[in-house]
Design a protein around this nucleic acid. Structure first.
Lengths: 333, 333
DNA sequence: CTCATGTGTCGAAGCGCTTCGATGGACGGG
DNA sequence: CCCGTCCATCGAAGCGCTTCGACACATGAG
């Protein structure tokens, strides 16, 4: 536990034979410094293994170079996507020389209040935003730079990023229609997700329904245990014997749906075509590999951070919807 | 975007009619303050909505009140457990008045170097530690307080926390043996996990094998796509027709294993008893509900933070193994 | 040759907090 | 009644960094 006295900017300045402020300017690039001096300073930095003290920097510059990532972590969430998302947020933030503070919703809105007021973070990234999200009013109140993943009911004045789920739902329906299917169904999120009014579920449904207006179509919520899924699928086919196309927008249930179809003796894609809205790895791991619209978690994370950084620099940042992409695999014809 | 001038400790002091240092002592409790003064100060704090500036506090006290959570996020990991874990880490850290900085392994060991040297964090929590983990030597070098989840080959002088996987493996075998099963198998993690030398997989295997020494037993790795699982299960029963007990230590494959058994016409638990090592929610969601040894992610997270906090206070902190608990459900007899 | 104009560097004043030593008053023992 | 103690509070010195204004010197225009 050698508690070495940490290297400060003063040590670097002394070592390089310049003033403290000169070192600071070399590092920040905020004033012109001659090439020779810059060289000398950078060498001293390397030689001493200098790392600026984060607290001091934050105090003096009023910028912590940290952003908060707020994950609600409620039931019925899609972990793999969330993880991909978190990873890409961290990676992108690092590119902008920022770190990421992890917050869960457990602390509630006061948590946001706290980190913002204490200047622990410069901005907020909220995930899994609901249509009627309790955090949104506070967010407006706070006036802290922020970006939301998902769209609340009133997105006026907020910066939001999301996959265009309506397009995704429509894309699935269109793909099935193009394959000649005349009667199709949407298996959605668990009932509780709709009741909570989570935007993405509703928007997918709307897009699906609109695109399927010339077909016979039906949409049902879908729980996530094998038994419930099997039940749902059975009822679905009992009530709609002519059904030949299925859109599954429920990551956790995808495997169960396929198992249930197997159990019912309906083969995919011969008897039923299945399109999923899920990450690629899930689609590829399924059997048969699923035609799917992927949730571009990586891209969403990247864009969200980009927008937040823009806001931190005082630039305008408009909301954006990311275009979905359909990948055709073995589960549709 | 009302950029209100933030409330400082000086504002509070003025409002309460005391010195700045008095406010500080009231808030930290490091010196005795009379009840009446304390009251007055606390009221001012509330009235003004004061939140100490994190940077200033870190600078002056040399404690950032932030810990780093390092998630490798590699392939073959168990996301739900990881999430539970992360959640419990955040919650526990908050109880100790600390926040959590999220780091991925992308940045490599220099990332640890960086956050430690910049005093961004007071300590490190490393997840998913491998037997031969490249981060471990650096960690020793760094001399930064840290706690590892998992045990590296040489844990000497380090503080590690983990489920006692050897006991877990043994517990499963013992449970099956007690049920009268004479020939049992372990379906483990994907092959790559063993090749990487991830400790928990090896230790489970060892515990299972030791406990099954009076039975006929076999252990095989297990991939995570349905087709591969089905294949593995089929081969397993072809080669071991007398097999009646299965231990599954692979979260992602559990569902597929049950589906494969259904497909082979073997019913659970009539023909085959199945014990899983997985979180409770997965075991409960399966059909039939699985007898399981849960991975006490929540507890691991809690203990890990507790130990780290102890170290930050200069107290000794010994490694610990958490005792597994078997829950009997419908999949064994 | 002088003066306005850059360039590159320096010194010092904070940023908001913690912490150490000092101070003043209340109190009881001698 | 004086002095030593103890308790509650205060003032001031940093913590390591950024940033502003000042300054020294070089440069080119007039």
């Amino acid at each position: 536990m050698r508690k070495v006295r940490t290297v400060t900017i003063a040590d670097v300045a002394r070592h390089a034979g310049v003033a403290v402020s000169t070192v600071s300017y070399v590092l920040s690039g905020k004033r012109a410094i001659s090439a020779t001096t810059r060289q000398r300073v950078l060498e001293s930095v390397r030689a001493l293994g200098y790392h600026p003290n984060a607290g001091a920097r934050a105090l003096a510059s009023k910028r912590a170079n940290v952003i908060a990532l707020v994950l609600p972590l409620r039931a019925g969430m899609n972990l793999p996507v969330l993880m991909q998302f978190a990873t890409s947020v961290v990676a992108t933030a690092r590119q902008f020389d920022h770190d990421v503070l992890l917050m869960t919703a457990d602390e509630g809105p006061e948590g946001l209040q706290r980190v913002a007021a204490s200047a622990l973070v410069d901005g907020l990234l909220l995930m899994d935003v609901e249509v009627r999200d309790p955090r949104v009013p506070l967010l407006r109140e706070l006036g802290e730079p922020s970006v939301l993943i998902g769209f609340p009911a009133d997105a006026e004045g907020l910066t939001c990023v999301d996959l265009d789920f309506a397009r995704a739902g429509a894309l699935c329906a269109e793909h099935l229609a193009a394959g000649g299917h005349r009667e199709i169904a949407l298996l959605g999120a668990p009932r509780v997700v709709y009741e909570r009014g989570t935007g993405f579920a509703e928007r997918t449904l709307a897009g699906f329904t609109a695109a399927a207006k010339d077909l016979k179509s039906v949409a049902v919520p879908c729980e996530e245990t094998y038994d419930e899924v099997a039940e749902t699928v059975k009822i679905l086919f009992d009530q709609h014997p002519g059904l030949t196309g299925l859109v599954v927008h429920n990551e956790a249930a995808v495997g169960h749906v396929l198992a249930a179809l197997r159990a019912l003796g309906r083969s995919v894609p011969e008897d039923v075509s299945v399109v999923a809205i899920c990450p690629d790895d899930v689609a590829e791991r399924a059997s048969p590999a699923l035609t799917s619209v992927l949730i571009p978690a990586e891209d969403v994370g990247h864009q969200a951070v980009r927008l937040l950084m823009a806001k931190l620099d005082g630039l305008p940042a408009d909301s954006m919807l990311l275009e979905p992409r359909l990948t055709i695999r073995e589960s549709t014809r």
